[in-house]
């Protein structure tokens, strides 16, 4: 018998590191989500291409052509869409992660497993749904004469990482506190409603700078979502334009690392809170 093994305290995990160790289970949880989502539909995952495709066409026609926003911002539909897919990703990831612990309560109170898996799986699933939207965006960009540099492509990857980390950190935090007070579900919904407007998705960043002044603008700009959205404009929209539009200064050299740092800090806070609260999940659920 394995008497070489030590006596250990059960139910003490290693936090996010455990999700890496249990990556097989993580994979199965993600696959389960996807299977359940598209169960009984003939087109299956193809739907996640159709929806953003139609969304883009609507933007292009209704906003760009009919409302004439193309006159103010070149390729307005591409501009809007490149920001919106990040917001979609963030909203889905955080919304589901915040509900993931309560949603999996039946399991959590019966079997011990690293509970971080649930918020992380939620973010992962949203990442899978992000991909088709990205494909639609790239197709739209190519049709608009996209010619990105390597730096712009690398920045786009970093932008995604910023949002994924932020969603994971906030997902851990709200997922944990939601067990104690279900009010936090509504707080998350509120937050997600504000997020779209707190970043230059529908409007242009210069409008904010001109109204807020540079001090407040720095605060506005420190929001990781704002940074990521601007990076997406820089990577996808900007290379389709004539290049006369003004980009936020120091976007890649300063703001991109700031965004990563803020998101990482949020992951640490989220993980810390989660670990403080997870000991009582089983009895509170």
């Amino acid at each position: 018998m394995s008497s070489v093994e030590q006596l250990v305290r059960p139910g003490v995990g290693a936090g996010l590191a455990d999700t890496f160790r249990s990556r097989f289970l993580l994979k199965l949880l993600v696959r389960k989500e996807l299977k359940v989502r598209y169960r009984g539909s003939v087109l299956g995952l193809l739907w996640s291409y159709v929806k953003p495709g139609v969304q883009f066409l609507v933007f292009y026609l209704a906003l760009g052509v009919f409302l004439g926003l193309n006159k103010g911002t070149e390729n307005y539909a591409v501009y809007l869409f490149s920001g919106i897919i990040l917001i979609n990703f963030f909203s889905e990831a955080l919304g589901n992660a915040a509900r993931s612990i309560v949603g999996n309560g039946g399991l959590i109170k019966k079997i011990y497993l690293p509970r971080e898996l649930f918020p992380v799986a939620s973010v992962w699933v949203s990442g899978v749904h992000f991909f088709p939207q990205l494909v639609v965006l790239v197709v739209a960009c190519v049709f608009s004469g996209w010619h990105p540099s390597l730096l712009q492509l690398a920045a786009a990857v970093a932008g995604f990482v910023i949002v994924a980390l932020l969603a994971t950190g906030l997902g851990l935090f709200f997922g944990a506190v939601n067990v104690y007070f279900r009010d936090f579900e509504n707080i998350v919904d509120l937050l997600l409603m504000v997020v779209t407007w707190a970043s230059p998705v529908l409007y242009v960043w210069t409008m904010v700078r001109n109204t807020l002044g540079s001090a407040f603008f720095t605060v506005y700009q420190a929001n990781p979502i704002t940074i990521a959205v601007e990076i997406y404009h820089y990577a996808f929209w900007y290379p389709t334009t004539s290049g006369t539009a003004q980009l936020p200064p120091h976007l890649v050299e300063i703001w991109l690392p700031v965004g990563l740092a803020v998101s990482l800090a949020v992951v640490f806070i989220g993980q810390f809170t989660f670990r403080r609260l997870e000991g009582r999940f089983a009895q509170e659920l």
Partner: peptide, 24 residues
């Protein structure tokens, strides 16, 4: 549930050796 690690005690300690399967 305390032995399987699903719950943690308010006071006192639980320790186990080897993999524990809690078929609750």
């Amino acid at each position: 549930k305390h032995i399987s690690g699903v719950m943690t005690p308010d006071s006192g300690t639980v320790r186990t050796r080897g993999r524990v399967a809690g078929l609750i």
